[in-house]
Write a protein that binds this DNA or RNA. Structure first.
Length: 386
DNA sequence: TCTGGGGTCCTAGGACCC
DNA sequence: TCTGGGGTCCTAGGACCC
């Protein structure tokens, strides 16, 4: 696929291209875009589906390399991190030398194909800004004395933390450049935007509100959720479509609960997300006094919420999220019922781990459209059947 | 200007407690 | 039954990030 126009995307009509190779970008494919539109612009485009497990694998490789250059690494996303070089830069020969060493290590240990953009600055805010300016595979270093000049050339929407809505709000106040934001009255910003006013003010001055925070010091996950957009919106009043929706909901609940259990956590709050065909959406949550951790429990609680939603319009997306988390899945339960439930759940997890995802599942989940796919991949993984 | 899926944080109002 | 002042938790929704 190298040197060809490829898109990370599904191949359905509603699929979204979330990333594109530089050959595709050269033909005018700007993400995000509908795959259909991309195809119209560039008929040779090849859709490739994302492989999240592989991304996580490479993510770990990259973070392992970062750890060698600083004890303070803040993971920002699957492919980004902030490194505090204050303590270690001298040992490696200064910031520029660190950057070159990181790039070299990545090429040698991960592959020649990988590129990385590095920004070095007195703050996270500015480092993030300049690293995005030097894409791909760039390196820029900004010193304190040059920060103001950079901010006066930077549009506010290029700062990490200012989206479309905030851009409009700030523009209405006459704020267009980052330096305008930094010079604006802090009192007025706080009055208008509450707690965030302080954050925006710092942003406009190229300063950080929080220092670099290593992963070990960061809290645990705050929520686990999944959602699914259907190829075609589903009508709750038609039996087959209702079953598909419910089967999908169960599957999402099972997956979210499974991820939560893997972290040894239990939840008290379920949030149900319904998006209708007209794109309007409802988020409804409920908090329960007793925590829970099985997919079936999550599903049943989601159904309680669902029963309070008026489902007259076709449903485009359904989602479920678990929050209000606590550690505690591995604690010993005193009640026999609880112990049995935990043993059953453990057995499910063990079977699915050994034989592949969805080797064992609740009957209702078979209504979900992905059944065929899951079933065949589970078999293939185990028996190499085509 | 309508496109997915994974998240985080903040706000405002209501219910409830002493 | 009404009044004040301090607080917590829950819910719905918005804005933002990759």
């Amino acid at each position: 696929l190298r040197h060809r126009p490829i898109a990370i995307s599904g191949d359905g009509a509603n699929a979204v291209v979330v990333a594109a190779s530089k050959e595709a970008k050269a033909r005018g494919i700007k993400t995000p875009i509908l795959f259909g539109e991309a195809k119209a612009k560039c008929p040779q485009i090849i859709a490739v589906s994302g492989d999240f497990h592989k991304y996580v694998f490479v993510h770990r490789q990259i973070m392992d390399i970062f750890d060698r250059f600083s004890p303070d690494v803040e993971v920002f996303s699957i492919d980004e991190a902030f490194l505090d070089l204050t303590k270690t830069q001298q040992r490696f020969g200064g910031p520029g030398a660190v950057a070159e060493k990181i790039k070299k290590a990545m090429r040698q240990e991960i592959g020649e194909w990988i590129t990385c953009s590095i920004g070095i600055a007195p703050s996270k805010t500015i480092a993030k800004l300049v690293s995005s300016l030097s894409k791909p595979d760039g390196l820029s270093i900004i010193e304190s004395k040059d920060v103001y000049k950079l901010l006066s050339k930077t549009n506010i929407e290029d700062l990490c933390g200012i989206g479309q809505r905030m851009k409009e709000h700030l523009n209405r106040l006459g704020i267009k450049k980052a330096s305008d934001l930094g010079k604006y009255s802090l009192l007025k910003l706080e009055d208008r935007f509450g707690k965030n006013g302080y954050f925006y003010h710092a942003l406009g001055r190229g300063e950080d509100v929080n220092k670099i925070c290593a992963e070990r010091d960061q809290g645990r996950e705050k929520s686990f959720g999944h959602n699914r957009t259907f190829k075609k919106s589903l009508d709750f009043n038609i039996r087959d479509e209702r079953n598909e929706l419910l089967g999908c909901l169960l599957k999402l609940a099972e997956n979210a609960a499974k991820r939560m259990r893997r972290q040894g956590m239990i939840a008290r709050t379920v949030t149900l997300h319904i998006r209708f065909a007209d794109f309007s959406s409802i988020l409804k949550s409920k908090t329960f006094s007793l925590p829970f951790y099985t997919g079936l429990e999550v599903y049943q609680k989601a159904l309680i919420i669902l029963s309070e939603v008026f489902l007259e319009r076709p449903v485009r997306l359904v989602g479920v999220r678990l929050s209000n988390l606590k550690s505690g899945y591995f604690q010993k339960h005193l009640l026999l019922e609880d112990r049995k439930k935990q043993e059953l759940t453990n057995a499910f997890d063990a079977i699915n781990k050994k034989w592949g995802a969805c080797s064992i599942q609740h009957g209702l989940a078979l209504y979900s459209q992905e059944r065929a796919y899951d079933y065949s991949t589970a078999l293939q993984r185990r028996f190499r059947v085509s």
